[in-house]
Design a protein around this nucleic acid. Structure first.
Lengths: 180, 180
DNA sequence: ACGTACATGTAAATGGTTACATGATTGA
DNA sequence: TCAATCATGTAACCATTTACATGTACGT
């Protein structure tokens, strides 16, 4: 078997919106869903080959570039993808290095823990700025944002914003708790 | 080599607070850090053997139970652990099945997406209740909560509460956006 | 007698990242 | 001519989970 689950569906999802090469899929991921989903070539290409073998996607050689392979989702693939979409979401057990380190904070000077959280806060803040810029540019682009499907793109972005704001709030609270 | 990083430090962290068997370590994890860090026996035992080989922990046979092995952290282990504690936190690339599904929501009826998010919201709500109960019982236990180290236990719990509240807020916002 | 908790471990499967290998095309 | 981008793929490694295997101790 090798290589399964998750990446399969990410790829099928991308191909449900557009046809393209492995390279295109990677580009699309980086551009749109990167902040909550990452894919790498080492994973994409073998999964593409596997999906094609299963008949969930079909391959066509590009007329322009010999090497380039253009993939499209098949009816069977769309069916399989929708089946997965309907299934309840599996809660994955989280592993947070940040919280693990905070838990064992008594092993190092309190000032170092504060420093650590300040650094994390900075990273959250710059991330938040990015998200806000993305939101703004999306809303400015009326052609995109007035489409009925736009809600499916804005919602994950909103998640990023809301979750990051909360994380920053926690940093502030924790720093003041450590100081006080 | 095999088996490395992360679990090593989780185990060293637990042993920095108490000595005990692999079984004890698992119990401790389940009781205290389970909501952001999980460990399983299949991982703990091989890592314990490895840490002992490296001289980061030491083993003593229990007087009561032949099988039971009691591990303690060594000076070298404490040093290694503190070194890791001082290192900046690596941001791990997240993979959110929820956001992936929302992104590709246009493939299924809108009502199903709403249903999906309602289900997720319910799970977040029951989780939030758990966290709040944990917080309350911790604050009631004056002996524990008045220790200076208590901040390191309350902070991760606060993170759980704040982050979950934010997630619920997002669910509500998204549901109303989908309805409106 | 039965179930639960205590206790330790191995093997296999799964999932994911990084490094390596190769080479064409396009634009500055 | 040099860098960036396009393009595909394999191999190795690392990390984690699940299933299997085994058995004792203690309370009801």
């Amino acid at each position: 078997m090798a290589i399964k689950n998750k990446t399969r569906y990410a790829i099928l999802g991308v191909l449900s919106l557009m046809s393209g090469s492995g390279y295109d899929i990677k580009k699309f991921c980086d551009k749109t869903i990167a902040h909550f989903w990452n894919e790498n070539f080492g994973h994409i290409y073998p999964v593409l080959a596997q999906l094609e073998e299963e008949g969930l996607i079909s391959k066509a050689a590009s007329s322009k570039d010999e090497r380039r392979k253009e993939y499209s989702i098949t009816a069977k693939g769309r069916e399989e993808f929708c089946k997965w979409m309907m299934e309840p979401i599996e809660f994955q057990p989280a592993r947070s290095e940040l919280l693990l380190k905070v838990s064992f904070g008594s092993n190092i000077p309190k000032e170092r823990v504060i420093e650590m959280i300040k650094l994390v806060k900075q990273r959250y803040e710059s991330r938040l700025e990015e998200y806000r810029a993305m939101e703004e540019s999306f809303l400015k682009n009326k052609k995109e944002s007035e489409k009925p499907e736009s809600v499916y793109w804005i919602a994950p972005l909103r998640y990023g914003i809301i979750a990051t704001e909360a994380a920053i709030k926690w940093c502030e609270e924790t720093i003041s708790r450590l100081n006080g």
